[in-house]
Nucleic acid binder design. Structure first.
Lengths: 212, 212
DNA sequence: CGTTCGGCTTGATGCCCGTCAAGGACGGAA
DNA sequence: TTCCGTCCTTGACGGGCATCAAGCCGAACG
C-alpha cells in the first residue's frame, strides 16, 4: 500500500521510484478547525497535499470583512503548487474547517526534482492544467445567472443521478461561501428544492430524488 | 529586433537559440472582428500567441444565450496552453473582438521541445502559474460584492494613480462582459463615478481624476 | 439536569442590477 | 445628402438576494 498522498492528481502519473524519492522530502502537519496553515502574502515555503479533513482557501478583498472563497480542498488534493512557481508569496489564505492533516513539500528540494526529471515536470504541467479547468468552471458557476442555479449545477456534479446520496464534508456555511452566497440563501434554496420533491435533506446528507 | 511573440511571458525566459528553434514551428493567422478562432470542444491543435488585436474567451453554459467571459486576451499574451496539456479539446471558445493576428504553435512539435529542455518546461510551468493567478483574481472580482465595486477594482488596476489615462482596446460591451455585468450597468456605474468627480470619460478613453 | 454556544432556519425589509424599451451619436455606403 | 447599423445611454420596472433580526435545535459541559 502506497502512502495516501500518492493518490493526489499531481503524483498520479509518477513511477513508484519517483514517489519514493519525493517521500524523503515530505513533512506532516496537523491542524485544528479554525487554525490557519498560511496567510495571504506570507512567504511561500513550498506546497501541500491534504490527506484528511478540509481546507478553505480565501482571498482578502478591499471590502472589510469580505473574504471570497476560491476553493475548498478535500482529501486527497494538492494546493499552493501555483504559489511555488508563480511568485514569492502565497496568493490566498488557507484555513482548516475540520481537523486536518497536511503534507508539506519544501520549495527548493522540489524545484530541484523538477529540473532533473522531465517526466515529473510534465506531470506537474498536467496537474496545473487540471486546476485551470477547475477555476474556469468556477468562473462559469459564479457568472451563472442566479445563486439558485449555481446550487443546482453543484448538485448535479455531486449527485450524478437520482437516488444518489452525498454527505457534506463541511458545514453548510462553508458550502454557501464556496457557491458565492450567504447561508440564509443556501437554506432557502435547499428548501425550495425539497418542496419541489427533487431533493431530500437530512442534516448534512443530501439525497437526490428526481431530475434537477 | 526579435519577433513580437518572443515578448510573451511564456517565452520570456528562453535563450535566443531556443526561440529560433521554436520559430520554425510558428504559423500566422489573421482574424476579423466576430470571427471565431476555435470553438469549445473542438479538438485541440496547439496553442496561440496574440500579437495584435483582442480575443475574447467565452464558455457555453446550461442557460441558453448565456456565455460567461473567462478572459479578454490582449497583445502580447499566449492562450490555450492549458488545453494542450490538460485534455484533448479546447475548454472555451475564442472570438476576435477586433481585427487580430495570432501565431499558432502545433501541438506535437511543441510537446517534443518540452521534453528535451527542462528550462523550457519550467518556463511553461511559470506561465501556467500566471494564468492561475489571473483566474483567481477573476473569481475574486466576480465574488466581490457589487458590480460597481468590481469596476472600481478594475479601474485601480488599469489606472494606477490619479492623472493616468487609458484607452479601451475593446468596445464597452466587451468590458462589461469581462466584468460580469451588462452594458447598461457599466454605463450607469461610469456615470456615477463621473458625478463623484473621480473619473472622466471621453469616448473610449478613461481619465482618472481622484482617489478611487 | 440546565446552560451555553454554534449551526441552521425562517421572516421582513430594502437595494442592487438585469431586463425591456426608447432614443441619441456616430460612421459607412449609396 | 439620406439611410441604416452599431455603440452607447437613459428611464421604468421587477425580482432576486443580502442584510438584519429572532428563534429552534442538538451537542458539549458543569
Amino acid at each position: 500500500m502506497q502512502p495516501a498522498w500518492t493518490q493526489a492528481p499531481l503524483f498520479a502519473s509518477l513511477t513508484p521510484s519517483q514517489q519514493a524519492q519525493l517521500e524523503r522530502l515530505a513533512v506532516t502537519r496537523k491542524l485544528e478547525p479554525g487554525e490557519t496553515l498560511f496567510f495571504e502574502e506570507d512567504a511561500c515555503t513550498g506546497f501541500f497535499v491534504l490527506v484528511a479533513g478540509a481546507i478553505q482557501l480565501t482571498r482578502a478583498s478591499d471590502q472589510p470583512g469580505a473574504h471570497p472563497t476560491l476553493a475548498v480542498i478535500l482529501p486527497v488534493q494538492s494546493f499552493a503548487e501555483a504559489a511555488m512557481f508563480g511568485g514569492e508569496a502565497f496568493p490566498a489564505t488557507a484555513t482548516a474547517v475540520q481537523p486536518s492533516q497536511v503534507i508539506h513539500f519544501p520549495k527548493a528540494a522540489f524545484l530541484g526534482a523538477l529540473r532533473d526529471d522531465p517526466d515529473f515536470a510534465l506531470a506537474v504541467i498536467h496537474a496545473q492544467a487540471v486546476w485551470l479547468r477547475r477555476l474556469a468552471t468556477r468562473v462559469q458557476q459564479l457568472a451563472g445567472v442566479g445563486s439558485g442555479d449555481r446550487l443546482r449545477n453543484w448538485l448535479r456534479q455531486q449527485l450524478p443521478k437520482p437516488g444518489a446520496r452525498y454527505a457534506l464534508p463541511m458545514p453548510k456555511k462553508t458550502l454557501a461561501a464556496q457557491l458565492g452566497m450567504t447561508p440564509e440563501t443556501l437554506s432557502r434554496s435547499l428548501r425550495s428544492l425539497q418542496e419541489e420533491g427533487l431533493l431530500a435533506v437530512e442534516g448534512r446528507t443530501l439525497h437526490r430524488l428526481g431530475e434537477l
